[in-house]
Every structure is written in C-alpha cells, then in structure tokens.
Design a protein around this nucleic acid. Sequence first.
DNA 1: TCCAGATATAACCGACTGGTCGTATGTACG
DNA 2: CGTACATACGACCAGTCGGTTATATCTGGA
Lengths: 182, 182
Amino acid sequence: MKVAREDIVKAARELFRQYGYAGASMQALATNVGLQKASLYMRFENKEALVPEVMALTLAETFGDPALDNPDWRIAYAAALQCMASGLIESRRCVGLHLAYGVTDETPEAREAVRGFFLGSRNRLKDILAVGIGVERAEQMATDALLRLEGATLWLASMGDAAPMERAVTALIAEADAASLE
Amino acid sequence: MKVAREDIVKAARELFRQYGYAGASMQALATNVGLQKASLYMRFENKEALVPEVMALTLAETFGDPALDNPDWRIAYAAALQCMASGLIESRRCVGLHLAYGVTDETPEAREAVRGFFLGSRNRLKDILAVGIGVERAEQMATDALLRLEGATLWLASMGDAAPMERAVTALIAEADAASLE
DNA sequence: TCCAGATATAACCGACTGGTCGTATGTACG
DNA sequence: CGTACATACGACCAGTCGGTTATATCTGGA
C-alpha cells in the first residue's frame, strides 16, 4: 500500500509542531504513517529535507483561500488575518515558530526554508496592504501583524486561551483601517 | 573546585534557549560547566528539575530593575517594556517561548514552571498598568503587550532583525498612554 | 591527626537517535 | 506468462540520550 508523499509531509508537520525539530524522530514519523523507517529514506534524503516541504505545504494551505484575492484590500486583509488566526487556533501552535527556534547552524537548508516561510507570509500580507497604505508602510505593518499573531500562539500553547489571538485580529484590522485614512 | 548552582542554571538556560528542551542534553550541560554528567544529578533530580530554576532566575533577572518600582506608572511601564525588550534583543531568543513550545505532557512540572513564568511576567506588567487604566483593562493590555514582545523575538531569531521589537516597545507605550486618557 | 560527610568521578545501563544495506514483495508492461 | 523496476522491509550500524552505581577525592570540624 503506497503512502502519499503529502501524507508523510503532513505527519511530519504534526510532529515538528508538537515536538520541534530535535524532538521529532524519524521512527515516530514512520510509525505514524504506517511505514518502516527505512522506507522514509527512499522518499526523503534525510530528516532536514522534510522541513522545506512542510513549510511549503503550510504556506500554500494558509493562503489558499480565494477571499485573499478580493479586489477590496480591506476584505482581503481581514480574510488573510482570519485564515492565519483560525489555522493557528485549530492547531494551537505554529510549526514555523517551533522550527524557527529549533533549527540550528547544522541544518542550514531547514533554516532557510523557515525564513522563506515567514518572509512569504509577511509578503502576502504586505502585498494586500500595499494597495491601501502604500508599499513603504505596508512592509512594516505586515511584519508587525504577522509577529503579533505569532506571539498570540504562546498563550494558545501554554494556556489554551485563544482570546489574545482574537483580540489581535480585531486590533490589526482596525489599525489598518485607521492607517488608510491618514 | 565547586561549581555554583546558579552557574549551572545559567548554562542550562543557554542550552534550552538555543536547542529547546529536547535538544539540550545533560552531557552538553556538564561539558559547558566543566563537570561530569553524573555530578549534575547530585544537584538536580533530573533534567526536568532544571526548568523551574531556569524560569525563576530569568523572571527575577528580567524584572529586577528598580526603575520598575517608580511611582509614576508611565515611567515604570516604559522601563518594564525596555527591560524585557533589551534582554530579548541581547539573547536573540526567549527561553520561555522555546520551552513553552518544547515542553510536553510528559514533563508536567516543567510545563507548570513555564506557565508560571509567563503569568508572572504578565502580572508584573498588569500591576503597573492597573494604576493608570484600572485592573480590568490592565490584564488584557498586559497580556497583549507580553505576547507582542514575544512575537517580535521570531524576527530576532530567524532574521536577526531587532526593528520589530523596537517598534513594538514604542507602540505599546503609546497605546498605554492613549488608553489612560480615555 | 583522624574521620565523616559532601562532592566529584569513571564506567556503565537500556533505550533511542539518524541513517544504511541486502533482500523481499508488489505491480505495470512486454 | 515473464521480467524489470519501484517500493517496502527487517536487521543492523555507531553514536547519543537520560539516568545509575560504586568508588575516589576533597574539605571542615573535633
């Protein structure tokens, strides 16, 4: 029975999310997808090679909502924040954040993939915001928005409380609105 | 030559910060403080027992600045945010965040210690803010402020960029000021 | 000076790590 | 039917993990 590559990547993501890079083991991944550990090495060169695929899949899933292409940038921005927030609330943690903290100099490709994930997320928000407030301020505001949502995952992970995340979304939408009126 | 307990805790903190709970090994800790691994187990029951001491030390260090006791709550609040931000910028990561993500059900005492660290930090901010904006709003605002600084560590860790952290401090001070005038 | 208690040590334990190897099993095509 | 190739497998590797044990060394007080 052939196991789809995407299923392995999704299972790896779950392990990375919960246990971090160091804490996620290839043995656990193999068990979770119903394969032998050796079989994983037929599909992926090594453990590190899983990271770029995990990040790419997560980026695509997060920003896959067609509402993000709405011509009204306010609607698109609110939808983007909602997509990110609801995804994070559902999984209670951000894989990217766990990997960003967990990846070291010894796994440079993984580190680069994580940077790419966050820059990609930031730029997605930036492109939407640029329509309403101009490119210059859009980059800063997009970065700060992303980091605010990421920060809120800490309360989600350690207290199981989603209220800060919801407050962040509301505040960020209001801030963008206010900025566009200046 | 006797190694001070606090030196072990500080070395453990550095390892937890960089490699997370799973990635930090007792062997590495022993080497870093110039001891044999077995000697560590004379002072600490196990690896998990390091976490509460790491968090307690960090909490005490972070909020040890006497400026936080300034009778003017605005000055105290700004000082508290500055203390937290400069500490995070210096180390480029937050131990607490790495541990919050890295600790699991199998290490319940460590998990509780991490919760205590963040609740302690939040309450320190809350007590200061309560003077200016009342207890009800103070808790929410303190939580959101803490999480915003924590979020900014992500850019610090993955991009080496402190600008979002500095923007966060400025914005948080302004927000508190504005809230007190309503 | 001698001894007791604290401190540190080397050697070791079973379990697990990322990763490899030779072989067996499916399956698509001639 | 036969064959060739991808897929999967169990067994194995050296090294590391958290943690233990029996022994050695240091240090302070009587």
